[in-house]
Design a protein around this nucleic acid. Structure first.
Length: 171
DNA sequence: GTAACGATCCTC
DNA sequence: AGGATCGTTACA
């Protein structure tokens, strides 16, 4: 069984984000049940210059993992109730992450983590080694759509309108 | 110590 | 259109 490894994640977020589309996000639940979900929507957050990226305010306890090399999970809480699941990309000290916004049959980053039972305990999880969450390649080569990211108006017009949300329409 | 603010979702 | 709900952050 193969999975996506460091050489996949340790590249620029704008390369990795669209390439995660169509791949399998695999979750092994505590019961032992393994489910595979096709990733259908992501957003790219790119380093210090991207004012919508949490790491643009510098390294804190929350954003620390984004400053490591690619392949780790960045998980945080928004609006006091939704866990967001991200994949760190790029090289060390190049804080970037891909937000997983949807898989086939489940739209919305908050609903996704609720369905996959992902919470704070996944912060820093190594997708290349974990036994409970990882990515597997598929042969699927989808046609990719792009548009502005959601919910980042606070970052100003430029960063809110830049087309760093990527998605695919299945069927 | 306090206060403000969300990379959202659900129900009007 | 508005409320839920709390960790993170900045500042005193």
């Amino acid at each position: 069984m193969q999975r996506l490894l460091k050489d996949f994640f340790c590249r620029d977020v704008l390369v990795v984000a669209p390439q995660i589309l169509g791949q399998h996000l695999v979750r092994r639940y505590p019961s032992g049940l393994i489910e595979k979900y096709i990733v259908t929507e992501v957003e790219a957050y790119k380093g210090g210059e991207d004012l919508a990226c949490h790491a643009s305010k510098g390294k804190t306890a929350r954003t620390e993992i984004m400053f490591s090399e690619g392949g780790y999970a960045y998980v945080y809480l928004v609006y006091g109730m939704h866990w967001m699941l991200n994949v760190v990309t790029g090289s060390e000290n190049q804080p970037q992450a891909v937000l997983i916004r949807g898989v086939k049959g489940c739209n919305g980053p908050g609903r996704l983590t609720r369905m996959l039972e992902v919470d704070r305990s996944f912060y820093g999880e190594d997708y290349t080694e974990s036994t409970r969450i990882w990515f597997e390649p598929t042969e699927f080569t989808p046609s990719i759509n792009k548009g502005p990211r959601i919910g980042v108006d606070y970052a100003g017009n430029y960063w809110a309108s830049i087309p760093w949300r990527f998605w695919i329409d299945l069927d």
